[in-house]
Amino acid sequence: MSKLPIRLTVNGDSHEVSVEPRKLLSDVLREDLRLTGTHVGCEHGVCGACTVLVDGAPTRACLIFAIQMEGREITTVEGLTPAEGLSPLQQALHEEHGLQCGFCTPGIVTTFEAYLRENPDPTEADIREVLAGNLCRCTGYQNIVRAIGKAAKAMREGATT
């Protein structure tokens, strides 16, 4: 079965790539578009490292075929990063030491960029429940939870000023 040309919109840019229908979105992002910030940790939808946004909703890139994504807007961690410096969420993760090996981090950034847009003022329990979809083996989650709470606050205050 041969490759087919498909058009993907990623981080606002349109790309034409030629891929087999079976190629996972995670692999197309990483190999064909060289957007290697999307990490692959399990390829069965549990670890959450490959989470990207599809039309703004968090989605496991390892559980979707790139060919399904024509006409959708895909956002990766690269697309959520400002040209200079860090986003409020990234900045809070830095300040609170909310990452160690960093492999799970992009999936956490994408998930919570989406979640905090929907829920700007989450409780710690809310944060933990959402974060439970992203496995981290290094941190014990405590600093990630604190960083997300801090980012939410910063974003709320940023929004009102």
Partner: peptide, 8 residues
Amino acid sequence: GHYGLRAR
């Protein structure tokens, strides 16, 4: 599952 799976 989790928030990140329920959208899909």
